[in-house]
């Protein structure tokens, strides 16, 4: 073992310099050429930063599209899921009460129209997206609160819906923050 200690120590030191140092710096330098210079892309309205492009934020007011329930309270410095098991009775009660409260806020919507992502916690607590159905089911409420025509908002949802990757892979989605910024611009 003794003959291996010195090489082990030295090799570890070289690895520290190379992987923590050289590799990290290389990626950092490359990141400077990326769109947001590796800082995370922000979204601004009238020159003021109102969010990060990748991360969802809390929307609770009736005039906005709501995003997914968040176990982290949309804390972008503490991502987390609920970790509730599928058979947990307390959890199922919570889901039921979210369904009930959704129906109260969205008169005219039938229960079978509510997609599950609107009443279940996301994995990160920062999910920025909804399925197109998850946005459309809220259109009636928003149209009523804002005094807009439903078609106009439906068009907006269609316009901002992003299809699968190269048209083939994965689900369609729509970004809630982009939707809400566009909503505010409709007036």
């Amino acid at each position: 073992m003794r003959q291996h200690i010195l090489p082990a120590l030295k090799l570890t030191a070289v690895c520290i310099v190379f992987f923590c140092g050289v590799y990290t710096l290389l990626i950092w330098v490359i990141a400077q050429a990326a769109p947001a210079h590796g800082l995370g892309e922000t979204v601004s309205v009238n020159g003021k930063v109102v969010g990060y492009a990748l991360e969802g934020q809390s929307f609770t007011q009736d005039k906005y599209f709501w995003g997914r329930p968040s176990a982290a309270g949309y804390n972008a410095a503490g991502s987390a899921g609920s970790n509730k098991g599928p058979s947990n009775p307390d959890y199922l009660k919570d889901v039921q009460s979210r369904i009930d409260s959704f129906l109260v806020h969205n008169p005219g919507v039938k229960k079978e129209e509510i997609p599950s992502e609107l009443v279940t916690y996301s994995g990160s607590g920062l999910d920025p997206d909804l399925s197109p159905a998850g946005a459309r089911v809220q259109v009636r409420r928003i149209a009523a609160v804002r005094g807009l025509k439903e078609e106009k908002i439906n068009d907006l949802v269609d316009r901002l819906t992003e299809g699968p990757l190269v048209g083939l892979f994965g689900p369609s989605k729509v970004n809630v923050e982009k939707l809400n910024i566009a909503l505010d611009n409709l007036h």
Binding site: L92, E112, Y121, D129, L130, S131
Partner: peptide
């Protein structure tokens, strides 16, 4: 297919079991 206990509540699970999942990946990729 989704969570059978939630199916009993009568809502749509077209994206499957979404508890703890992200919309941009969907159930299959998760």
């Amino acid at each position: 297919k989704g969570n059978p206990a939630i199916r009993g509540m009568g809502i749509a699970q077209h994206m499957g079991n979404m508890e703890g999942k992200e919309v941009r990946f969907g159930s299959a990729a998760s």
